[in-house]
Design a binder for these strands. Structure first.
Lengths: 400, 400
DNA sequence: GTGTCGGCCGTCTGCCGACAA
DNA sequence: TTGTCGGCAGACGGCCGACAC
């Protein structure tokens, strides 16, 4: 059971309930979501993967899907949809970020007329420029003291102190995702000198139930506002099943909702929870098309893929493609969801997923893209349920 | 996001996840659920109402159902099911009690052979005998002091003190729903003398996040164990929507799961949350049949109905039946769910539901039940989709 | 440059009976 | 009979520089 604050990327969004009128700061939302999370543009076309959605529900309910749920043979493993609305949210209790999207499957006629626009590739997540993120130590979260601010971070992100004062100090006011303000005393003292947040810090720590290992993010934005977000450590045990509906019914519900929307070309609503599971199941159409039609992949090929580091930055891991096949040949034949089986170079990468999707990898050997964009690289025929994008011209793909 | 402890009414239940192996105390569960909540017997036959289930999901997600969800014309408004399993649970964060049930719709053949057993009427909730329930005052929950135990309650429920000591005192150990033990110092002191819980009480209050207005329940059971439960005040604002699945998808999910199970005679799982909404949507078959076939109701008839009081006991409110009609003639024609429209005698009863179901009311004018159990009292023909219980004999209904 | 600690002081917790409703 | 309060003693919160890594 949750309440949340929400915000539309296009400003305000009043279709939420009474308690959800507040506007979330997009910059702070993205900082909390992490550098790898990007959201599609409102109005653009996207590809929705019921399989990936299912994975997220599995991760959120902490329960595998039962084998007895019905098949939806009419439901394609990938639905091309128009993204009508997108609102950013944060759980009021945990501040966990998520996005609500309203999708409408394209009619068969619309699918024939697809002409890709470069803007629909999806822009990479724009992380704020003037910010810092610190993983909290035992001292930071203990009741015995305050928060030790890394020197460079304080000098870059906080307003300058008057160092002629002894000791130099000021009051900081920071806004969290829900718009609540938090006051902190910022002081520069000690031997050697260091930046500390003292009065007000412990109130914040206990209110948000922050523990050592969690991270805080401070942003100084263009409007000279200080923003404050938190990112919890990966305590996977905190994922709890809902007592509202059985996980089986939830899986059936997401499939039936998508199938009904596809059959009637009507809208449906989904939640995307970027930190619950590594399954980005709504992909900009152009990104998908580029990967599926313009990327040559084959067994044995070397590739790179982006991952988020502990310090909230990104690094590339390398691996080799070992096979290309259906993840679930019975339920989801001819699906591109995690159709690429891979091996990772580093032994420490043992927990990385053994299967990825085409649009997640960057092949290391760059072939010339033109003039043969339609040369086949897949080991199997194109699924009959999918359009061939007859309106897709090469010129439309000249991006990035 | 929730974890929960669970318990089968038949002892242990190992079909839950790893973290849910603990056994809930049934007596304590029922005390927390309240005197009106009764659970059907495992193995018995019940009637499941998708409409009522939908009401509970609406209450839990705090969102009305969207009009765009598909119809399930094949889904009957009442499904006769076998109850294969029932486990009692409690939310690990809020201690909110709920039950998980595994239901299997009867095949058409089984429905023809129905012969009611008296035991299937469902036993009334057996509240513990040796217990007390107190709504906490500001002093009880403040950090300034302990818990003032009402004198009769302490003398009835707690082990006797040695009054020759000065002051008389002992250590109490109480187990909550999850099996956690809480230690309290029980002392009899002051002028005038009174029973108090001092050391240990504030730890419990802050751990459970108890506030003034919430209630605590102490039970002394047959095994000489002290049990301790909490019942939160009706702070309806605490009901929060899930961020796992949209409420539309949840509604579709519960309908599709029931429809699939009915079509294939397979099992499905539901959660019944007695304090989330006043909709008991799984009813013992015999109770349902008795109400529908053996109770004469008509417009203008006076009746009584049980309600829970603030003090966790029951009282009867009186009213008059104003009409008998479908709650939702479009989606759920010929449903017995809340088919009786009523007016309440007391003006303070303004918030009571204007619609109830047949099995919830006791008609005040008692007609002779025999020899005409099948004389029709409903204003409309019996829905064709429902069986007539050909095996039902009068002798089987000789109860209560 | 920063994590943890001992020292120190002020506030709050928490046990007591007084008192009144 | 029991809810709230003033009084009081001790625990803990929280600000400080020392010190070490």
């Amino acid at each position: 059971m949750k309440l949340s604050s929400s915000s539309s990327t296009s400003g305000f969004d009043m279709q939420q309930g009474e308690e959800e009128k507040k506007c979330l700061n997009s910059e702070l939302w993205h900082a909390c979501a992490g550098p790898l999370v990007s959201l599609p543009q409102i109005g653009s076309r996207v590809v929705y993967f019921p399989q990936g959605h299912s994975e997220q529900v599995t991760a959120s309910t902490n329960k595998e899907v039962d084998a007895t749920i019905p098949n939806y043979p009419g439901l394609s493993p990938q639905l091309i949809c128009q993204l009508h609305n997108l609102t950013m949210h944060a759980d009021l209790e945990t501040e966990e970020v998520y996005a609500q999207m309203t999708l409408q499957p394209l009619s068969p006629q619309d699918q024939k007329d697809i002409c890709l626009l470069p803007a629909e590739l999806g822009s990479p997540s724009k992380q704020p420029t003037n910010y810092f993120c610190k993983t909290l130590t035992a001292s930071d979260t203990s009741t015995h003291g305050g928060f030790s601010v890394p020197r460079r971070a304080a000098e870059k992100v906080f307003p300058p102190l008057d160092y002629s004062l002894t000791p130099p100090a000021q009051e900081l006011i920071a806004k969290d995702l829900h718009g609540n303000e938090w006051k902190f005393r910022h002081i520069f003292r000690g031997q050697p000198k260091r930046h500390l947040l003292t009065t007000g810090w412990s109130v914040f720590v206990s209110a948000k139930r922050i523990v050592a290992g969690d991270s805080v993010i401070f942003i100084w934005n263009e409007n000279n506002q200080l923003l404050l977000g938190i990112r919890r450590a990966n305590r996977s045990q905190t994922v709890m099943p809902s007592s509202v509906l059985s996980s089986d019914s939830m899986h059936i519900g997401l499939l039936a909702a998508a199938a009904h929307a596809a059959a009637t070309n009507s809208r449906f609503t989904i939640f995307y929870n970027p930190r619950a599971s590594p399954s980005e199941f709504v992909i900009p159409l152009a990104k998908y098309a580029k990967a599926v039609y313009h990327t040559r992949v084959s067994v044995g090929m070397r590739f790179r893929m982006l991952f988020e580091t502990e310090e909230s930055s990104v690094r590339r891991y390398m691996g080799t493609i070992t096979s290309i096949s259906d993840l679930d040949p019975v339920r989801w034949p001819n699906s591109h969801w995690r159709s690429v089986k891979v091996g990772w170079d580093e032994s420490t990468a043992g927990e990385k997923q053994p299967r990825v999707s085409l649009w997640e990898v960057e092949p290391l050997t760059t072939f010339p893209m033109y003039p043969s964009p339609f040369s086949l690289r897949l080991k199997r025929p194109w699924p009959s349920g999918l359009p061939f994008f007859p309106g897709l011209r090469d010129g439309d793909m000249s991006m990035n």
